[in-house]
Amino acid sequence: MRRPDLMIASADPALRKRLAETPPVLLLDLPLPGYTGLESLQAIQTLSPTTRTIVLVARPEDSDAVLALKQGARGYCSRQSEPALLRRAVQQVRDGEIWVGRSVTTQLLEELTAASTRRAPGPPRRLGRLTQRERELVALVAAGASNKEIADRLSIAERTVKAHLTSIFRKLGVSSRLHLAVYTLEAEGFGQEKGPTDQSPIDRRPRS
């Protein structure tokens, strides 16, 4: 495994040249403490979208790791890591996985929950965007009906069912039938007396 010794600057000609070879994995050494080098991550992705980058830093910080990952890094670890460990990191990242410490995973989960709650107005409001016909479809999907069954039930073509579903998914911001079913469940009022869940004043900081 080659280890390109890279300059940080995204415009660096050596980096550009090496990236033209589209290496599957890139170990990016960011030797300056406190400098996350996020611009270079984005530049790398533009120059070689298939390259997966592992960021090496002098002093790993969970919050820096999360930032780097959000900017496109696929791994993050100390530059003092044992060679054997680095080799494993490279393998895992090449295979599509993320290489970070366990505590970073915890932070990622918190990010995920926070991002989900920030987003999306509560289900009831969004359901209001659907047409009457779309709402009929949603009820059938939630009841577990297949496209064929829905088509028969509403006397429309299966193709039409699919078109409706695409529109529903887009309007509600869901990605699958299952997701849709979960969504409806919530909209039906499970625990709505507390108001929209996206406003919940949940403490997202890790407790000590």
């Binding site: 990952l69 959000k70 696929r74 895992q92 599509g96 996985e97 993320i98 970070v100 366990r102 505590s103 995973t105 915890t106 990622l108 989960l109 990010e111 995920l112 991002a115 989900s116 920030r118 987003r119 911001g173 890790p206 407790r207 000590s208």
Partner: peptide, 23 residues
Amino acid sequence: GEAWVPRQMVSRILDQIVRLSAA
């Protein structure tokens, strides 16, 4: 205070975060 998810799930989680932040 730790998370208990297998390694291969982490990339899915990250994908979701990126998608949500992009949205």
